[in-house]
Simulated scan of single mutants.
Amino acid sequence: MQQTMEPVEVWTGPSGMPERLVWRSRRFRVDDTPTPLVGPADWWLPFAGGESGAGRAPLAITGWRFQASSEAGESHVFDVGHDGAHWHVLRVFD
């Protein structure tokens, strides 16, 4: 596993799930069903310090995990995230 914050280009479908990406000048096509990575919703952070209610903080999709393969047969599992402006590779599993 490599941890990174490299920029990556990601193309998503109508549902927002990744379908293709270009990483390190190589094209990859997502070849499984992406799994959402979740974390506390950004809008909740100002309230996180107070115990204003029961339960846990609301969750939001913070990124995606999926396997993708190149035409040359190179495959990796990618964790990607979006910072509001750009996509980044968070981790790569070989």
Rank of each mutant, 00 (worst) to 15 (best):
L59S: 09
A54P: 03
A57G: 08
V80K: 01
A68H: 00
H88Y: 08
H86K: 11
E51W: 15
F93A: 14
F28T: 01
F66E: 03
V8F: 00
T12L: 04
D31E: 07
L21G: 00
H86T: 08
Q2N: 15
S69K: 08
G63D: 04
D94P: 14
L90D: 05
L37T: 05
H86Y: 11
H88S: 11
H86D: 14
R56Q: 13
H86F: 10
E6G: 11
A68W: 00
G53K: 07
V92A: 06
P40F: 06
V8L: 03
R56N: 11
M1F: 14
S69G: 09
A85I: 10
G84C: 05
D32H: 08
Q67Y: 03
Q3C: 12
L45R: 07
L37E: 04
R27Q: 11
D32L: 09
I61T: 10
L37I: 10
L37D: 02
F66H: 03
S52T: 14
L21T: 01
W44I: 05
D79I: 00
H76N: 08
P36M: 09
R29M: 15
F47W: 08
M5E: 15
G73T: 02
D83G: 06
P58R: 03
W44R: 02
V77I: 14
S52W: 14
E6W: 04
R26G: 07
R20C: 10
R20P: 03
V77W: 08
S52H: 15
W64N: 00
R56G: 14
M1C: 12
E9H: 15
G73I: 02
D94S: 10
F47H: 07
W43A: 13
M17S: 14
E6N: 12
S75W: 13
A85S: 07
A54Y: 12
A54C: 11
D32K: 07
H86M: 10
P34K: 00
Q3V: 15
P34D: 06
P40G: 15
F78Q: 01
S52C: 13
A68C: 05
A48P: 05
S69C: 14
R56H: 08
A85N: 08
W44S: 10
Q3L: 09
A60M: 09
A72P: 06
R65G: 01
V92N: 06
G39H: 05
A54W: 13
P36Y: 07
T62K: 07
E6K: 13
G16E: 03
A60T: 12
V77P: 00
S15N: 15
D94T: 11
